[in-house]
Design a protein around this nucleic acid. Structure first.
Lengths: 124, 124
DNA sequence: CGGCTGCATGAAGGAGACATCAAATCACCA
DNA sequence: TGGTGATTTGATGTCTCCTTCATGCAGCCG
């Protein structure tokens, strides 16, 4: 094995860590899409979208199929959707809790704390 | 809703997109750990690890519990492990396919392609 | 009290990711 | 064959993240 597992996993999550790439994946949930179709739906200019698609393609998350002068993309492994579902479930409950916490906080008085003394600049 | 869903999801994946943070999560799979216990297992210096823990904590992935002079961390939502499992499954099969492809490529002759002409520098 | 241990935070430089424009490539058609 | 539309690639400025050092701070113990 060239790279440790946790490094590979981290890289994998990194390829997913971009709003446009997430959108693309969610759009591909209901089937193949050409780049031209994705452009208006994702809202990026062609070259920018192509870069993002390239990142997903090089990570083997997406695959492109050439059809005439267009390229149609689809997901390599449908389990990616399962991943998105689990993420969504986690986020939904986590956010619900945070919101709840916020409500509770707003019902409390603010307690003023004195300003901390200024920090000395690090001499390097 | 302040931010679109795909932005929230992307941020979530971003908090996971670091090898040390993945390691921490995998270690917390079998229960609570103090920072001091994590240091040798993750292999980061204290302050660096603390920064990474802070990122996970602020994202509500981890929670810290103060016990005397130490802090014990645990995962907020156990479904995070499910997420890691799905990711692992995807990576395992994807990597297996890539390896297979590599083997096939190595059995082919290389076809030399002429160097492309130099690109003109963009004048901006 | 005073120092130590355990952890968190702030600041700063360097590395890497993003966004954007220009240019290249390929398929198709007039 | 030249032109046009669709997509990709390359180059580059900007911005964000990562890492490290210095410091802050709370609890514990002598």
């Amino acid at each position: 094995m060239t790279r440790p597992i946790y490094q590979v996993k981290a890289d994998f999550f990194k390829t997913l860590a971009h709003p446009a790439r997430i959108r693309v994946l969610e759009l591909l949930r209901d089937g193949e899409r050409s780049v031209g179709e994705l452009i208006p739906e994702v809202g990026l200019e062609a070259s920018h979208l192509s870069q993002q698609l390239g990142i997903l393609r090089r990570a083997n998350v997406l695959q492109g199929r050439k059809e005439g002068s267009t390229v149609r993309y689809s997901v390599t492994d449908p389990r990616i959707f399962e991943l998105l579902e689990v993420a969504k479930a986690i986020l939904t409950s986590t956010l619900a809790e945070s919101r709840q916490l916020l409500v509770e906080l707003e019902s409390l008085e603010f307690v003023e704390r004195p300003d901390p003394p200024p920090r000395r600049k690090a001499a390097r």
